[in-house]
C-alpha cells in the first residue's frame, strides 16, 4: 500500500522523486503524449472554433458568444435535446438489461454455448452501412417483418411512424450492439467464484435469489461502468438516425449530434456546430461530476 500511494517521505529531493516515480511516469508518458496530440489538441481547437465564424479559406473571424446565441435561438435545438434525452432513456429501458440477461442465460447453456456467443457477436462484424441498408428493408411496409405479421394474421406495423420511429431505431441498435456488451459481461461472469453459488444453494437459495444476491452484485461495478458508457454513447448517437430516417418524420428522430452534423456539413456552419459540441461537453462534464459526487456521498451515508 505504501509503495502504491507514495505518501511523501519527508519531501524527497528531485532526484529521489524522479527515481521514486521513474517507472510510473515512463509507462505513462507515451500515452499522455498521444492523448494530447490526437485528442486534446483537436478537442480544444474545436472549443476555440465555437467562438469563431469558421471559414478555412478566407480566414476565421472572432464572433464572441454569437454562435451560442444562434444555436440557442433555434427551435430545432430544443427538439433535438428532448429527442436525445428520450432516446437515452428508452435505450436504457429496452436495451441495457438485454446483454446482462443474455450473458447470464448464455453462460447457463449446457450445449452450444460457444456458438451462441459467436452468433451474438456476428452483427458487430457487419459493416454498419450494410446493416442499416438491411434493416431498412426489414422495416419496410412490405418487408419480411410485416410479411410475417400478415402471415400470423396480424395487421402491418408502421415502423417509421412518428410514434414508433424512435423505438424502431432503438431495437435496431440494441440488436447491433448487444453482442459486444454480452461478451464483456460473460468475461466478468466467469470470474464470479463458483463456490459462492454452491454455498448459497446449500443454504436453500433458489436460482433467482442466486442471480440477485450473488451474480448481479459481483458484476455491479462493470454494470455501472457500462451503463455510464451507454449513456454517453447514446447521447452521441446519430448514425442510425442519419441513414434510416434522416431525423424524420417531422424531426421525431432528430438527435443532438445529427443536428450538429447538419450544422457542420449541410449548413457549413462549423462555428455553430462547435458551439453545440462545447455545450454538450460542458453538460456531460457537469453531469458526471455530479454523479460521481452523489455516488460517493451515497456510499458514505
Amino acid at each position: 500500500m505504501e509503495l502504491q500511494l507514495g505518501t511523501p517521505i519527508a519531501k524527497p529531493g528531485l532526484r529521489r522523486k524522479t527515481r521514486w516515480y521513474f517507472w510510473g511516469l515512463l509507462f505513462l508518458i507515451p500515452e499522455i503524449l498521444i492523448f494530447f496530440l490526437f485528442l486534446w489538441v483537436p478537442i480544444f481547437k474545436g472549443i476555440v472554433y465555437s467562438f469563431y465564424s469558421v471559414d478555412f479559406v478566407s480566414g476565421n473571424v472572432f464572433v464572441g458568444w454569437k454562435n451560442f446565441a444562434d444555436v440557442l435561438s433555434n427551435p430545432d435545438y430544443y427538439t433535438a435535446v428532448k429527442n436525445t434525452l428520450v432516446y437515452m432513456g428508452l435505450a436504457v429501458l429496452i436495451g441495457f438489461w438485454m446483454p446482462i440477461a443474455m450473458a447470464i442465460a448464455v453462460s447457463e447453456l449446457k450445449w452450444f454455448q460457444g456458438s451462441a456467443r459467436v452468433i451474438g457477436y456476428l452483427p458487430s462484424i457487419i459493416p454498419a452501412i450494410v446493416l442499416y441498408a438491411m434493416w431498412k428493408w426489414f422495416y419496410d411496409p412490405i418487408g419480411p417483418i410485416n410479411s410475417f405479421l400478415n402471415f400470423l394474421g396480424l395487421p402491418s406495423f408502421d415502423f417509421y411512424s412518428r410514434e414508433h420511429a424512435v423505438l424502431s431505431l432503438i431495437i435496431l441498435e440494441t440488436w447491433q450492439n448487444f453482442g459486444s456488451a454480452t461478451l464483456i459481461y460473460i468475461a466478468a461472469l466467469t470470474a464470479v467464484p463458483k463456490d459462492l453459488y454452491e454455498a448459497s444453494e446449500l443454504d436453500g437459495a433458489g436460482v433467482w435469489a442466486r442471480i440477485r444476491y450473488i451474480t448481479l452484485p459481483s458484476i455491479k461495478g462493470l454494470i455501472l461502468v457500462l451503463l455510464g458508457l451507454q449513456l454517453i454513447a447514446t447521447s452521441q448517437s446519430f448514425q442510425s438516425q442519419l441513414t434510416m430516417t434522416n431525423g424524420g418524420p417531422d424531426n421525431a428522430t432528430l438527435t443532438y449530434l445529427l443536428l450538429t452534423t447538419r450544422e457542420a456539413f449541410n449548413n457549413f456552419n462549423f462555428g455553430n456546430a462547435s458551439a453545440m459540441g462545447s455545450i454538450m461537453f460542458v453538460v456531460l462534464v457537469v453531469c458526471s461530476v455530479v454523479t460521481i459526487k452523489l455516488r460517493r456521498g451515497g456510499d458514505g451515508g
Binding site: I43, K45, F56, S58, G59
Partner: peptide, 26 residues
C-alpha cells in the same frame, strides 16, 4: 476537473494562434 479544463483551454488557445486559418495559413 475544472482546473484541468481551464489549463488545457489555455494551452489550446495559445497553441492555436499559429494554426488559425488566417489568410497567410491558407
Amino acid at each position: 476537473a475544472l482546473v484541468l479544463i481551464l489549463i488545457i483551454a489555455g494551452c489550446g488557445n495559445g497553441d492555436n494562434k499559429g494554426n488559425r486559418s488566417s489568410p497567410a495559413a491558407s
